[in-house]
């Protein structure tokens, strides 16, 4: 995982496990890997996702109806690992880990080849007290978020605890915005850049085309695209073509 972050223009694509159809996850990840995406974030669908916008909420709802479970997601990742070693992050909510069994969850994730996690509602202090040693010992990464409201002092604390990268939430919003990047956001990105953090930074929320991706890459090591990609694959079953076109548009315009 660490090697991924030596370069810039990192493209991290978010997909919802079990969407559009239950077993599409494997094919979609393989196609993304073939198209030189750098990191895959796999969402574990949750009924009450407090940080996700309507597009991802709907895909999660569909995936749950399709019968997706955490056990199934681990099986799919095991399958993916037969063909690619692309870094994989699992994104989900703390309640899902608690019900699965937190320790069991991290061990199983390690076993099937997961590289890290994004758990937006896991408080920093609870992670430090209860989970950090385990996650570090397994050689896994825990990625924390920062927002325009996060103070510099807290950003430093997050920089000391996070591993892998810092997820820079681009604006005051849940995922899926489609506006252009504003001057206010640029000021925020510049503030982060000037802090010279230990960890790489990736911008997410509202990144949806080449222009927003390029702007993000000017200030950080790369960006995360979620809702825009979910919308595309929701439209068509021909993943080979859809994915190659989508990635080409982001990288080359």
């Amino acid at each position: 995982m660490k090697n991924t972050f030596k370069k810039n223009n990192i493209l991290n694509i978010y997909i919802t496990a079990g969407f559009p159809k239950l077993n599409d996850t494997v094919e979609i990840v393989n196609e993304l890997a073939k198209n030189n995406v750098d990191i895959i974030e796999i969402g574990m669908p949750f009924s009450d996702p407090l940080a996700d916008g309507p597009t991802i909420q709907n895909s999660s709802k569909k995936a749950i109806e399709n019968g997706i479970t955490i056990t199934k997601i681990f099986e799919q990742i095991k399958e993916i690992r037969k063909s690619t070693d692309i870094p994989i992050l699992l994104m989900g909510y703390y309640n899902q880990l608690l019900q699965y069994g937190t320790e069991k969850f991290f061990n199983k994730a390690k076993e099937v080849g997961v590289n890290g996690f994004i758990i937006p509602d896991l408080p920093l202090d609870i992670y430090q007290k209860k989970l950090q040693t385990l996650v570090n010992n397994l050689g896994l990464n825990m990625i924390f978020l920062i927002t325009p409201q996060t103070t510099n002092e807290r950003i430093m604390a997050i920089d000391n605890t996070t591993s892998g990268f810092i997820y820079v939430v681009s604006s005051y919003s849940i995922t899926g915005g489609s506006n252009e990047i504003s001057k206010k956001q640029i000021n925020y990105f510049e503030r982060i850049k000037k802090m010279n953090l230990k960890n790489p930074t990736l911008i997410g929320f509202g990144i949806h085309n080449k222009k927003t991706f390029d702007t993000a890459c000017k200030y950080t090591n790369g960006a995360i695209i979620g809702s825009a990609f979910i919308k595309e694959i929701g439209k068509s079953g021909d993943y080979q073509k859809t994915i190659s076109n989508f990635i080409k548009n982001i990288r080359k315009g």
Binding site: L50, A51, Y94, P120, D121, L122, P123, D125, I126, F144, L145, I146, T147, Q149, T150, T151, R154, V169, Y172, I174
Partner: peptide, 20 residues
């Protein structure tokens, strides 16, 4: 002081709500 009643409570919120 952390918002717990025995083993219950706390503030399990995403960073977007942390400040507020």
């Amino acid at each position: 002081k952390n918002g717990f009643y025995g083993g219950f409570g706390g503030a399990f919120v995403p960073e977007m709500l942390y400040h507020n």
